[in-house]
Amino acid sequence: MANKSYNIYIVGLGGQGVLTIGDLISDVAIKKGYDVNFYPTKGMSQRGGFVQGQIRIGCPEVGPNIPPKGADLVIAMERSEALKAVRFMKPKGDFVLYGLVWAPTAVMLGKADYPSLDEVKGELEATGANVLILDPELLPEYNGLKVRENLFVLGAAMARSGLKDILSVEDIARGIKETWPKGAEENLFAFECGYKAAQS
C-alpha cells in the first residue's frame, strides 16, 4: 500500500458518534493495508461532554498526538467545539463542520456566551483550509426518523476532502455494512445523503 500519510482530527460531543466514525475509518484503512493509530479521548466524558479522536494513517512509526497544523482533515460535529480543532488544521487541508448548536446549561440560562456562526466561520477560514459547513437542517430522515449525523458528515467529508485519495466510497460503504449488518441500509443512506449534500 502507498505510504502516503494522512491525519484526521475529529471533535464533537458524547452521544454524537464521534468515536464510531473514528473506529469505522480506522477499520477500513487497516483493512486496506495502511498503518493506522487511532487515539480516541473520552476521558471523563459523558453524553454532551467533549470527545475527540486522532487518526494517523500511513505512518509505520508515529506517535498518537497530531501536532499543531498537522491534520489533513478535520471533522467537527458541533459549532462551538469546532474551535478546538483550529489548532490542528493544516493550511490547505479540509475542514468539515456540522453546524449543530448544542448549548450547555449555562448558555441556556443566559449565564455564558456561545460563539456565533460568523465568528466560528472566521476562525475556520483563517486556518487557510477549505471549509465546508453543513447545516443540520440538511440531515435527512429515514422511515420518518433523523439518520445518524456522524455518517451523514462522513459522507460529506468523503465528497469534499482528500480522504477520497486514501479510501474510496466503496471502502467506506463496505465498512458500514460490516459494522452494522442490520442497519446497513439506513446508515448507507445517511452516508450517501451526506456525500450528495457536499457535492451540491
Binding site: 467533549f50 462551538s80 474551535l83 489548532r87 448549548a103 450547555p104 449555562a106 448558555v107 460563539p115
Partner: peptide, 9 residues
C-alpha cells in the same frame, strides 16, 4: 480560538 469555545463543566 479554542479558548472561545463554550465551557462544558
Amino acid at each position: 480560538a479554542a479558548a472561545k469555545c463554550t465551557a462544558r463543566p
